[in-house]
C-alpha cells in the first residue's frame, strides 16, 4: 500500500492524521480513497497542491500511477521564476 504523508497545511482535513496507508494504483484513486476516509480531502487536494510520488514532484497530478510501495507527499505548488 502507498504511504501517504499529510503536511501541516492539510492536517485539518485529516483530523491531524499525518500518515496513512492507501491501496491505490493512481493518484486519482488515492485521492478518492482519502476523501472517503476524510470527507473534504479531494476538494482540498485536487487542482490545488502538487505531489511528490517516489521523489518526483508533479505540479498537477491526476492519472499518475502509484506502485504498491510508493511514497506520496503533498506539497505547495512551486513554479519559480
Amino acid at each position: 500500500m502507498a504511504r501517504v504523508f499529510i503536511p501541516d497545511h492539510l492536517a485539518s482535513v485529516t483530523d491531524n492524521v499525518r500518515e496513512v496507508e492507501v491501496m491505490a494504483s493512481t493518484f486519482r484513486e488515492l485521492v478518492q480513497k482519502l476523501d472517503e476516509r476524510f470527507p473534504g480531502a479531494a476538494e482540498a487536494i485536487m487542482g490545488k497542491v502538487a505531489v511528490a510520488i517516489d521523489g518526483d514532484i508533479i505540479h498537477d497530478p491526476f492519472l499518475d500511477p502509484l506502485e504498491a510501495d510508493s511514497e506520496v507527499h503533498f506539497l505547495h505548488r512551486i513554479e519559480g521564476g
Binding site: 504523508f5 503536511p7 511528490a52 517516489d54 521523489g55 514532484i57 511514497e71 507527499h73 503533498f74 506539497l75
Partner: peptide, 17 residues
C-alpha cells in the same frame, strides 16, 4: 557532515533521488 544525499528525506517531504 550534515548534507542530504540520495535517499535523504527533504525537509519538504519526499526522498531525494
Amino acid at each position: 557532515l550534515n548534507a542530504v544525499e540520495e535517499g535523504s528525506t527533504a525537509t519538504y517531504g519526499p526522498k531525494f533521488k
